[in-house]
Amino acid sequence: MSIDDESSPIKAWLARHPRFELHFTPTGSSWINQIERWFGYLAHQMIRRGAHKNIQALEADIRAWVKEWNKDPKPFIWTKTAEEILDSLARLCRRISGAGH
C-alpha cells in the first residue's frame, strides 16, 4: 500500500486533519539544508565573534541574537538551477577522480 492508494490510511488521516499538508522535495533541497545554513550564519555572526564567560552568557547571547533576527528575518533562497548544481558536481567529480581518495 502506498500514499497514492486511495484507501491509504495516510490519505484518510490527512483528510481528517486538513491543516497538515505534505510537501515532497528532493533530498538536496530539503528544509534541513536551510536550517543548517541558518545555524551556520548564527555561528559565524554571533558565536565565533563573541566572548562568553559561561554557558548562561552564551545562551543569553544566542537568545538575544535570535530575537533580533526575528524582527526582520531573511529567507534563504536557492539561487542555482538544478543544471548549475549538477554541472558543479560534475566538475568536482572530475577534479577528485583518481586523486587517491
Rank of each mutant, 00 (worst) to 15 (best):
F24W: 12
G50V: 06
W65I: 01
S97T: 15
I77R: 14
A82H: 13
D61F: 01
I77H: 10
Q56A: 11
T81K: 07
I77C: 09
G40Q: 09
A99N: 09
I32E: 07
D87Q: 15
C93A: 15
K71R: 15
I77L: 12
A51Y: 11
I3Y: 13
P9A: 01
R94K: 15
R48N: 12
A57M: 05
F24L: 10
R94T: 07
N54A: 05
F24R: 07
K74I: 12
Q45Y: 03
R49I: 02
A15F: 04
P9Y: 00
W69M: 06
S30R: 01
I96E: 08
G100Q: 03
Q56G: 05
F39P: 00
T79H: 14
W13A: 13
G50Y: 03
Q34W: 01
I32L: 13
I47E: 01
R16C: 08
L58G: 00
P26R: 07
K53W: 00
A51W: 10
L86S: 14
L42A: 05
S2Y: 09
A51H: 11
T25P: 02
W31I: 00
H101C: 12
F76T: 09
A90H: 11
P75C: 07
R49A: 15
Q45R: 15
L22W: 02
I3A: 07
N70M: 12
A12R: 13
H17S: 04
F20C: 07
N54L: 03
